[in-house]
Nucleic acid binder design. Structure first.
Lengths: 228, 228
DNA sequence: AAATAAATCACTCATTATGGGGGATGTTAA
DNA sequence: TTAACATCCCCCATAATGAGTGATTTATTT
């Protein structure tokens, strides 16, 4: 009986009617090191669910062919000749906002990480990851995740966290937060249900403690030291 | 020869001289659901490297015993009776900044996530994780990582990312960014090498486009819509 | 009980900053 | 060749700011 059923399948000219072709995940690689680029491409094509539709050694070409490549995911180096990967991410996200970009790089500097994420990268991997981890990362993106190397994740989390030792009192911190949102003394007073003069006093004390003498100075120092 | 060496080991009264006791990772659980609390504790104690030194159903008690428990890691629920987990995280980090807190909760709301991370949480897990994932998360923290559920990671990343469709020109965005840092028109003009009057014009246009009529309004709207 | 920190409010004074109105010019991209 | 963008200019009234010098009250700590 089993063989009979199989027969039915075999006489079908187009097998896709019986076994509909799986929709492959289209991946583009942008990476100037040929060796790395090719090894990524091989890795991707070895997986039955993925296809590397194109690979480029620069952003400009990748952007040019973006609509014909029509990728779901782009693996992106950010130390590229010509247009930087960061700018590239921005442009790509402008043209095709729904593509997921995974930044893959040797750089672990805070600036690069945050620039890439701000620009629109969905994940941030360092190049020392294993092939298995790379495939995992792609899977994660496809299921709504945001793959990051562990130390990158820690950096990202740390960027949220305020300093535990602030010279400012909680009330002063509150006032400064409002100031940093562009509020005037009068508005701050109204929102905190205190007198404008009290706000002035708090701000005078804040300036003294932070050793500054202007709004901009206080906001800059407080931001840098994660006081707000 | 091997047996001889073993002999030497056996005649030792205190075996720790030969096999020094492994330093156990001390873990504290704060979770008001008794069932969950006990299952976490069991899971931890089953692992030879970990020990659950204490478990509490509220923050206050956990803080009280913080120095005697001396934990490396705290698993923290944030929907607690009495002091909220968020406040608890803040207090704990103030008293003992080097402890790593992993928030474990049913809540996936953006606010809770960011509050917990801002307060000093090193990881953020939702309660639907498997025992294996929980152990993995603890390992990640110990190796400098920041474990997060995938959708939490995406939320965190998204919080960095600017809108791709802004009504503002790049120059206007630039001006607004400076304004949001508390700079005056004059300072902005100096830093962008343009005339103060030009800054004024940009700001007038920004206000019109954002449909506001003040600095605070513009900053609020721009922040909410991720234009800056 | 005395000292300290924190939060609150008051008044003056000079200077800047801000928002709204009007208009203008040159460049670049669609 | 329009439209968008970036640049600059002037007037005006009001609000905001920074510095100075004070005071009161309420906790908390010593």
């Amino acid at each position: 009986m089993i063989s009979e059923i199989k027969q039915v399948k075999w006489i079908n000219i187009n097998p896709s009617i019986m076994e509909p072709q799986k929709e492959l995940v289209r991946i583009v690689i942008v990476e100037d090191d040929q060796l790395i680029r090719e090894s990524f491409a091989t890795l991707i094509n070895e997986n039955e669910n993925y296809i590397c539709v194109s690979d480029y050694d620069n952003c400009e070409d990748a952007i040019k062919n973006l609509s014909s490549d029509n990728p779901h995911i782009i693996l992106m180096d950010i130390g590229l000749p010509g247009m930087s990967g960061i700018q590239g991410i921005r442009k790509i996200k402008n043209v095709k906002p729904d593509v997921d970009i995974i930044t893959v790089t040797v750089h672990e500097e805070d600036d690069k990480v945050f620039d890439a994420l701000c620009a629109g990268s969905t994940g941030y991997l360092t190049k020392n990851i294993s092939p298995k981890q790379m495939i995992n990362a792609i899977n994660e993106v496809l299921t709504g995740g945001a793959p990051m190397s562990t130390n990158i994740a820690r950096k990202v989390i740390r960027s949220f966290q305020k300093s535990t030792e602030s010279p400012l009192t909680s009330r002063e911190t509150e006032v400064l937060q409002h100031l940093a949102r562009g509020k005037s003394y009068t508005m701050i007073a109204d929102e905190l249900y205190i007198n404008k003069e009290t706000v002035r006093t708090h701000i005078k004390n804040i300036y003294q403690k932070l050793n500054v003498n202007s709004k901009a100075g206080a906001i800059e120092k407080a931001t840098k030291n994660k006081l707000i």
